[in-house]
Design a protein around this nucleic acid. Structure first.
Lengths: 193, 193
DNA sequence: ACAACTATAGAACAATGTTCTACATTAATG
DNA sequence: CATTAATGTAGAACATTGTTCTATAGTTGT
C-alpha cells in the first residue's frame, strides 16, 4: 500500500480522540475498534499505542474528558441556588443527549478490560462534589431539610441519570420527553423539601 | 481430546442459560464468550447455535427472562396501592442487586450486535405496564394528580433505575445505601403528590 | 434392531487487541 | 546545510473472538 503522509506528533492525540468519539456517537460501542479509530483519524493503528495505552488509554482519556465536561455542564453560580439546581438538572440531560458517546463510556457500557484509573475516578468524584455543593447551598437556605446534602445529591443524580439513561436506550415511554423530564425535576424539588 | 458424555437435549437449553448467567454475575460481560459458556455448561460450543441463535439468542433469552422476573418482582396487589408502589420500588432494587447479570443484559451494557427482537421488546413493555397500572391505582385514590400515570411511571422507573444502576457501577456515594434508597422512594412519593 | 436425530470435537474463517519489525519521514542538532 | 535522533507508517504475526462446516458417535424413537 502507498505510504500516506504522516501526521504531526502533537496532532495525533486530539485526532484520535475526536475520531474515537465520532465513532461512539454514530455507531456505539460496536464500531469502537483500534483499526476503525485509526482509519477515521487518518493515522496508523500503532498511534493508539504510541500516544495512549491502547484502547484502554483512549477510553480513559474520554472518561476524564466526559466527567470534566459534565462538571461544567452542571455548575452554575447565580444568586438563586434553587434555580442553579434546576439548571444543573437540565444541563445534565443536555450533556447526555449531546454527548451520547461520552455518556456511553461513563455510564452505559462496560468496555472490555477497561477499569478507570484512580485519577479518573477522582475526576468523577469531583463532578459529584460539584453537585453536592449546589445541594448544600439549597439546604443552607432551608429548601431541603430531610437529609444530608450527599444523600440528596445521590438521589438527584440517580434520578437524572436514570431518566437520560433509559432515554438513550430507547426505553422512554413518555409522550413528551422534555415535559416528563421537567416533571422529574419538579418531583425532586417538591419531594426533597 | 476425549469425547465427553453428551448431555440430554432437553437439558442443554437450561444448562446454557444458567452457565451464561453465572458468568455474567461473576465476571461481567468480559467473560461472556461462546467457549466459556459452553465449557461452564459442560456442553459443546455448537450447542449455542443448535439451541439458540448463537450468542445473541442466549442474550435474547436472558433479556426475556429478566423482564419477566422483574415484572413479578414489582407486582403487588394488596389493599393499599400506595404501599404496593413502595414495595415495587424495593422489589426493583432487590431484583437488580440479586440479578446483576440479568440487569446488565437489560440495562447496563450494549452487547456486540445484539438488539432485542420485537417479541422481547414487548415483554419489556409489559413490565412497564405493570408499573403504570400500579401508579394508576394511586392516581384513582387522588395520591398523584400532577400528571398522567404513564409519565409518573416513567419518572419512578427512571429514579429507581438510576439509583441501582449507579450502585452496581460502584458510583454510589451514599453512606447508607439502603437508607438513601428509602429517601429516594420517599422523595418520589412526596414529590408526585 | 434399526433408523433418525443430534451432541461432540475439531478445523476453518474473518475480525478483534496487541506486539514486533523494517522503513520513511520529520525534527533536532552540530 | 548535513547528519543524527525521534517518531509515524505499513505490515506481518499471535492469541482470542463469533461463526460455520464436517465427520463421528452417542441417544432416541419406532
Amino acid at each position: 500500500m502507498e505510504r500516506t503522509a504522516r501526521t504531526p506528533s502533537n496532532q495525533i492525540g486530539p485526532d484520535v480522540l475526536r475520531a474515537a468519539l465520532a465513532i461512539l456517537d454514530e455507531e456505539g460501542p460496536d464500531g469502537f475498534t483500534v483499526r476503525a479509530i485509526a482509519q477515521r483519524a487518518s493515522v496508523a493503528p500503532m498511534a493508539l499505542y504510541n500516544h495512549f495505552d491502547g484502547v484502554n488509554g483512549v477510553l480513559e482519556a474520554l472518561w476524564i474528558e466526559g466527567f470534566d465536561t459534565l462538571r461544567h455542564a452542571i455548575t452554575f453560580a447565580s444568586a438563586s441556588a434553587q434555580e442553579d439546581l434546576v439548571k444543573a438538572g437540565r444541563g445534565y440531560r443536555q450533556f447526555a443527549l449531546e454527548n451520547h458517546g461520552l455518556y456511553t463510556v461513563m455510564f452505559m457500557h462496560r468496555f472490555r478490560n477497561f477499569e478507570p484509573s484512580l485519577e479518573a475516578s477522582q475526576v468523577a468524584a469531583q463532578t459529584y462534589e460539584a453537585l453536592v455543593l449546589n445541594v448544600g447551598r439549597c439546604q443552607d437556605l432551608g429548601l431541603f431539610d430531610r437529609s444530608s446534602a450527599r444523600d440528596a445529591a445521590q438521589v438527584i443524580w440517580s434520578a437524572c441519570h436514570g431518566y437520560v439513561s433509559l432515554e438513550l436506550l430507547g426505553i422512554n415511554f413518555a409522550a413528551d420527553r422534555d415535559a416528563t423530564f421537567e416533571l422529574l425535576l419538579a418531583t425532586l424539588q417538591n419531594g426533597l423539601r
